[in-house]
């Protein structure tokens, strides 16, 4: 297995607050890797650090064997794309779906835009009827599909998913998760997915890392969650909490 994404002892500091205290992980090509934790665990910060949205204080990040510098170049953004948590906030309110999808094509200079937009909309199950709508004319699930289409249109090899379904209803979540699995299979993508929901991660990922207070608690295979084969108390607590309320 070749390493697609390698994070080595990455630290992130915001105004003296240590959001990440040296986290390492290694994601193989075609693998789906999950990051689980509660708020303040640093899971989203790690994702944003990889994407270049927050500055890394120390440590190394490598994509496809190439160590990334301080500034990400255009080539990086062809390879790595991201889907955000809030489908209401991640689409520009004054642009139609068409404009939203055209933008990445224009930036990277793709020639056959018309075709690609049509194909991208079909791929996420929206069809051309949605092409000239504004985001306020779409439901939450449809917006998230547009966001996925926008991320996929430049044909990346790594998709960073920041709680892509936590703002959606359960039934819509199922549809979006199925869609994500489908595109991953079709395009042989590598996923790095963040969620607070153990069940979602267990469903979507092969391996996962539990995080707390900016540090890794433990790394394990997703199948270990089903068999309760975990070594850390914190993971056990998360597992128990995900089962629902138990009257004591």
């Amino acid at each position: 297995m070749t390493s697609m994404l390698r994070v080595d002892q990455v630290k992130v500091v915001f105004d003296h607050f240590r959001a990440l205290r040296g986290v390492s992980l290694d994601v193989a090509q075609g693998e789906s890797f999950g990051l689980v934790g509660e708020s303040g665990s640093g899971k989203s910060t790690l994702l944003r650090a990889i994407a270049g949205l927050v500055p890394v204080a120390s440590g190394k990040i490598a994509v496809g064997g190439q160590v990334l510098g301080r500034k990400r170049d255009k080539e990086f953004y062809r390879k790595v794309q991201m889907v955000f948590q809030d489908p209401y906030g991640s689409l520009h309110p004054r642009q139609t779906v068409d404009r939203l999808l055209q933008e990445p094509l224009a930036i990277h200079g793709f020639p056959d835009g018309e075709q690609r937009i049509r194909r991208a909309l079909d791929e996420v199950g929206l069809g051309s009827g949605f092409r000239f709508r504004y985001s306020h004319q779409l439901s939450g699930g449809q917006r998230q599909r547009v966001a996925i289409a926008r991320a996929l249109i430049v044909e990346p090899s790594i998709l960073l998913l920041d709680e892509p379904t936590s703002a959606l209803d359960a039934s819509v979540q199922a549809e979006v998760l199925n869609l994500l699995e489908q595109v991953r299979r079709d395009r042989k993508l590598t996923f790095l997915m963040v969620s607070h929901d153990l069940a979602v991660i267990a469903h979507m990922c092969e391996r996962l890392m539990v995080m707390q207070n900016g540090e890794a608690v433990e790394s394990l295979a997703a199948s270990a969650l089903g068999t309760r084969d975990v070594s850390q108390d914190y993971t056990r607590r998360l597992l128990k909490a995900s089962e629902g309320f138990v009257r004591t």
Binding site: L53, F76, Q81, M82, S90, E103
Partner: peptide, 25 residues
């Protein structure tokens, strides 16, 4: 906002972001 972050993640130059995404707002 996330939608500006999303454009940054496409690799857009700062000038493009200002002219095409921020100014209309």
């Amino acid at each position: 906002s996330d939608y500006i972050k999303a454009v940054q993640l496409m690799g857009a130059s700062p000038m493009r972001i200002v002219l095409r995404h921020i100014m209309p707002m």
